[in-house]
Each structure stands twice: as C-alpha cells, then as structure tokens.
C-alpha cells in the first residue's frame, strides 16, 4: 500500500517537475496587448488624444484608462479595428476631436529664420536644418501632426492637404442604381 502511494506520488512529482521545467524552457513570448494596440494606431505622434504619443496612448488603452475613440488621425476605421481587438463596441470619435484629411507641414523657406524650434518639436525627425540655416520638411516622413506649427516664432509653417496623384489614387466605392422591387 505504502509502496503504491510512494510510487504514484513519485511519478506525480517527476511529471510535475518536467511540466514546470517545460513551461519555463519553452515559454511562448505572447505579443503583449500594448504592441497590438500600438500597431493599429497611425503613429502620427500628434498627441491629440491627450497622451505624449501613440505608445503612451496604447499603454493607457491597455490599462483601461483611456477610451478607444480619442485618435482623430486613425479615424473611424481605426476605432473599428481597436474595438475588434478589444472586444468592445465601436463608438463615434470623442467630443471636440475631428478627423481631418491627411496633410503635411510646409515651411515658407523665405520667411524661415532658422531658429530650430520646429526641429525640436517634430516627433519623427522629419525637419532638416540647423541654427540660422533655412529649415525644410521631408514630406514623405511628415505625419501631419501639426506640432511644429505653434512653436514657429515667425508663423512660417502651414499645413497642406496631400493631393491625390496617380500613386495614391484609389478606385471609388461603386455606386449603381438598384431596381426597386414593388
């Protein structure tokens, strides 16, 4: 009797040990929720959500501190995808926030005094220039966050809506007449 108990307990302990070791040894690195949320956010780093960038906002959503409808550049589509990921209902964009067409900042190079304030403000290093040298924006890298507009002491930065060209043109949603069935 005692032998049987000891044998069974021994087997149990050995198997438990193996399982425990395997759980540590072969642990699958789960993609944390923050990364998944961050992957949906548009990475404009504009701070319109009230956080210091996309990553902090993603962290706040993951912790349940922030709502999913605070990101205007992500738009309706972004909210829908966040809702899908988190298993909640999509909702309209938060109060006071509006979705704008994609724009890029443009520096009026004749007016620029080379103060570097916009360079310090740009969250994605999309402005090149040096002190007392003219600055210019790399339009391909600009996320349209507008953070450089306010610091400019001579108001020489404005936002321009990105025009559609043959590279970015899309087929429109087909509209056709459906017959009314009486």
């Amino acid at each position: 009797m005692l032998n049987a108990i000891l044998v069974m307990a021994g087997i149990g302990l050995a198997l438990g040990g193996i399982l425990g070791w395997a759980a540590i040894r072969f642990r699958v690195q789960e993609d944390p929720l923050v990364d998944k949320i961050d992957a949906i956010l548009p990475q404009t780093q504009c701070g319109q959500c009230g956080y210091a960038g996309c990553r902090p906002y993603a962290e706040a959503i993951a912790k349940g501190e922030a709502d999913i409808n605070l990101c205007p550049p992500g738009g309706e589509d972004g909210i829908k995808r966040l809702a899908e990921l988190l298993g909640v209902d999509p909702k309209p964009l938060g109060e006071g926030l509006e979705s704008k067409p994609k724009s890029v900042a443009v520096i009026d190079e004749d007016a620029c005094i080379g103060c570097t304030l916009c360079i310090q403000a740009c969250p994605v290093d999309a402005i090149v220039g040096a002190a007392k040298q003219m600055h210019t924006i790399l339009p391909d890298q600009c996320t349209g966050c507008e953070l450089c507009v306010a610091p400019c002491p001579v108001d020489c930065i404005h936002m321009e809506v990105v025009k559609e060209d043959l590279n970015t043109w899309k087929w429109r949603y087909p509209i056709f007449h459906m017959k009314k069935v009486p």
Partner: peptide, 15 residues
C-alpha cells in the same frame, strides 16, 4: 498606411 506608420514609429522611437 501601415508602412508609413511603421516608419514613423521607428523614427519616433529613435528620436
């Protein structure tokens, strides 16, 4: 858009 976002993320993180 995803590619642009990835690029912006990388640039922001590097900054």
């Amino acid at each position: 858009e995803n590619q642009a976002a990835d690029q912006a993320r990388a640039r922001h993180e590097f900054r």
